[in-house]
Simulated scan of single mutants.
Amino acid sequence: MRIDIEDLHVAYAGRTVVAGARLIAADGEITGLVGPNGSGKSTLLRTVYRHLTPHAGRVLLSGTDLRRLAPAQAARHVAALPQERGGDFELSVHEVVAMGRTPYKRAFAGEDATDREIVARALADVGMTHHTGRRFSELSGGERQRVLLARAFAQQPDVLVLDEPTNHLDIRHQVELLALLRAARRTTLVSLHDLNAAASVCDRLHVLHDGRVIASGPPRQVLRPDLLAEVFGVRATVVDHPLTGDPLIAFDHRRPAGGPVPEPGPRDHVPT
């Protein structure tokens, strides 16, 4: 299934946060949202998974307006991993992941063999099989992130909506999570701060700036030095990654775009 966002406007507290956004998350592709803090990425994603109601515009799931679906029906199609995690669950890891089966259950229905198999597979996918009986509240931030991703997998959605899913993960688990998203080949809409991770994992990127989509396309087409300077305020060049061939952004960490040239320090002098 694909997601079409048509002329989306979202405002709250009297301020427009997303202004006329148009973008597509194609069937089976990973579509990334990138942009500086405050550009509207999280607000747009919250609208897709129905946490927010748009002021105008629509979010379509293969042509059907998501707002017209009943909550349980929508949850069978779209699963979300938001940034806000809520309070600590006084539940076991297994119980948290099993919450992903709720859209498929009648009221007060218990867990059956199919549910247990799906939950076990989701936990295995995120490397948390051996933590099934632990309390969610006892886990580290990275472990909680993986459990919540497993809950989204257990929902068996057509579309995954992920808001900064690599937050709190160490580098190994970041790489594993992104590889897992690649292997799943579900329609995925994901926001990422790490532009190199976005360039590596995403089939298409949409760049948000001040609530507007200002560029869209494959990572190599979108992540140009002039756009990085304009949107992110950084000096950078884009080269081929020596291991993967993906676009690799090399940042100038000594000064921002348009900033003054710093005086050379001791490390800048090469001994003769």
Rank of each mutant, 00 (worst) to 15 (best):
T102E: 01
Y104N: 09
Y104Q: 10
Y104W: 11
K105W: 11
R106C: 08
R106K: 15
A107Y: 07
A107E: 02
F108Q: 01
G110I: 00
E111K: 08
E111V: 14
D112V: 10
D112L: 12
T114Q: 15
R116S: 13
R116F: 12
E117L: 14
I118Y: 02
V119A: 07
A120E: 15
A122F: 06
D125I: 13
G127N: 03
M128T: 02
T129V: 08
T129N: 01
H130A: 13
H131L: 15
H131C: 13
T132W: 11
G133F: 07
G133Y: 03
G133K: 08
R134A: 09
R134E: 11
R134M: 09
R135L: 13
F136R: 06
S137G: 08
S137P: 09
L139A: 06
S140H: 11
S140N: 10
S140I: 13
G141M: 11
R144T: 14
Q145L: 10
R146S: 04
L149A: 10
A150E: 06
A150F: 03
F153T: 00
F153I: 12
F153N: 03
A154M: 08
A154H: 08
Q155H: 07
Q156S: 13
Q156G: 10
Q156L: 12
D158Y: 02
L160F: 14
L160N: 06
V161L: 10
V161N: 08
L162H: 13
L162V: 08
L162P: 07
L162T: 06
L162C: 05
P165F: 15
L169E: 03
I171R: 04
R172V: 02
R172N: 10
R172E: 03
H173P: 00
V175C: 01
L177C: 04
A179I: 00
L180F: 09
R182A: 07
A183M: 11
A183G: 13
A183S: 13
A183E: 13
R186V: 02
V190H: 02
L192P: 01
H193F: 09
L195I: 01
A197G: 09
A198Q: 02
